[in-house]
Amino acid sequence: MTETTTGGSTRIWDLPLRLFHWLLVALVAFSWWSGENHEMDWHRLSGYCVLALLVFRVWWGFVGSRTARFAQFVRAPGTVLAYARTLGTRPGHAADGHNPLGGWSVVAMLAALAVMVAAGLFAVDVDGLESGPLADYISFDQGRAAAEVHEAVFNLMLLLILLHVAAIVFYLGFKRLNLVRPMITGRRARSEGDSEHGAAADVRWSPMLALAGIVIAGAVAWAVSTGFR
C-alpha cells in the first residue's frame, strides 16, 4: 500500500454487511447456474434467499453500522460529481465505507436485484410448467412478460456487476487501494485522512437489531414463497 498509514487498522464493514455481500455473490452465481440449467426448484429457492437478503439489507440500511446506512452512503449529485473529478488522481484516499460514486453503484445493484426478484416471483415459463409463487395472481401472457423483464434485468445486472468488478480492479491497479480485503476481514489500514473525515472509529453494530432483521427477512421471504396463502 502506497497510502500513508498512521498505523493500525480500522473496521469499516460490519459482519452482517460482509455476510450479506458474499452470500449475495454466491446466490447470484447459483441463481444464474440453476436458471440456465432449468433447475427451477433450486432457482426458486435461491430467489427466496436473495429476497431475504434484500429485505435484510434494506433494514440494515437504516439500523446497521455507520457505513451500512443509506443516509451515510447515498450522496447528493454535487458530492458525487466532485468525487468523480478526483478519480484520475492517485494514490487514492480510502473512503469511510462506500465512496460517493460507489454508493450509487450499490443503489443501482440493489434496485436491479429488487426488480429482478419481483419479476421472477410473477414469471411463467414458456410451457406454463414452471412459475414464480405469485404467478397465479396474473394471466399467462402477463407471466410471460414478467419472465421477459426478469431476463432483461438480469442482463443489466451482469453489466452492473462487471462495472463493480472493473471499479475494484481500477482502485487496486491505479489507486493502489485494495477494496476486496476489507470486504472479507472488515478492516482496512488507517490512512491520513481518516481523522478529518471522522472515520477513524471502528464501525459498531447491534447483534439484536441484526437478529431482528434476519427474522423479518426470513418471514417476508417465507410468506412470499407461499404466495401469501
Partner: peptide, 18 residues
C-alpha cells in the same frame, strides 16, 4: 397454439395449487 397450451398448463397449475 403453443401459447394456448402454455396458458392451459398454467391454469392447471394454478388450480392444483389453489
Amino acid at each position: 397454439n403453443f401459447k394456448k397450451i402454455g396458458g392451459a398448463m398454467k391454469t392447471l397449475k394454478d388450480e392444483l395449487g389453489g
